[in-house]
């Protein structure tokens, strides 16, 4: 058999296998029951408008808070990691290893219950607020690595040119290196944002009140109340409504970066 013939046959076989599997699943599934369990319009209507005005709003709010917090923490950790003073480097390295190595869920859980006890303070937002601190700690560790990579991607000649003009190390970092580094890391940073948006679902472990429910918690409560999966489907669609445009944006940015300015 010629090689091209054999390749054509393999491809045809793969097509047949794929559609056979799809048809088997479609035929085996109980569509009516699935529809009743996951796409009930009366239940869907009942979720509105709170699933948007409270749940989606909280998801976005928590994402923004943890992203901004993680960004500030990330800049500090990245600068520490690149510091010429060894203890700062050690601290940042250990920090990043710990919070990247632990499950985010565990960190959030621990913070939600530990922070109020350890510091004897009431975090604004109660346990969810304390849980958010956990999410910021985790986000900071990931974002620190992204920022460090961005700083190191700025050519050394930029630092040298800046220093040769009499700019101090701090001024050089603030006016020359960081602005360029941030430009480089916009795509991976947007990626972190999307990951963080999804990770806000982990805040359910912190326990939430009616007003602090985010999408996943809201949907889970809906699932329990109605013994029906429709709220989960709605939450899923709302997540995708935000994440898909964002990931498209990242792809667009990456293409623009590749073309170069």
């Amino acid at each position: 058999m010629r090689r091209t013939t054999r390749r054509k046959l393999t491809r045809a076989g793969l097509y047949v296998l794929f559609f056979a599997l799809v048809i088997a699943v479609v035929a085996a599934a109980d569509w009516q029951r699935l529809g009743e369990q996951f796409l009930r319009f009366d239940i869907a209507r009942e979720q509105l408008p709170e699933i948007i005005t409270i749940a989606l709003r909280n998801t976005i709010l928590f994402t923004l808070i943890s992203f901004v917090g993680g960004l500030l923490l990330g800049v500090v950790l990245a600068l520490m990691k690149l510091s010429s003073v060894p203890p700062y480097r050690w601290f940042a390295t250990v920090y990043v290893e710990i919070f990247r190595g632990l499950p985010a869920l565990l960190t959030i859980f621990a913070m939600a219950y530990m922070v109020p006890i350890a510091l004897g303070i009431r975090v604004p937002g109660g346990q969810v607020g304390a849980g958010l601190i956990g999410l910021i700690l985790v986000a900071g560790a990931y974002i620190a690595e992204v920022i460090r990579a961005g700083i190191q991607a700025v050519p050394k000649g930029q630092t040298e040119a800046s220093r040769s003009l009499g700019m101090s190390p701090t001024k050089t970092m603030g006016w020359i290196v960081l602005p360029q580094g941030f430009r480089i890391i916009i795509p991976p940073l947007t990626n972190e944002f999307v990951l963080l948006l999804k990770d806000t679902s982990l805040l359910f472990i912190a326990g939430s009140t009616v007003m602090t429910k985010e999408l996943t918690t809201f949907a889970r409560d809906g699932l329990t109340t109605h013994s029906n999966g429709t709220p989960l489907v709605m939450a899923a669609m709302l997540y995708l409504l935000v994440t898909i445009p964002l990931t498209r944006l990242v792809a667009l940015l990456e293409r623009r970066m590749a073309r170069g300015r």
Partner: peptide, 30 residues
């Protein structure tokens, strides 16, 4: 260093600033 100008083989202009920005940043910050 403000009294010693330096010109590099690879130019090392600041790509995120326009020409005027390149020429004014150190004047203003230093």
């Amino acid at each position: 260093r403000t009294r010693i100008g330096m010109v590099f083989q690879q130019f090392n202009l600041f790509p995120h600033l326009d020409v005027l920005g390149n020429l004014t940043i150190a004047q203003r910050k230093v």
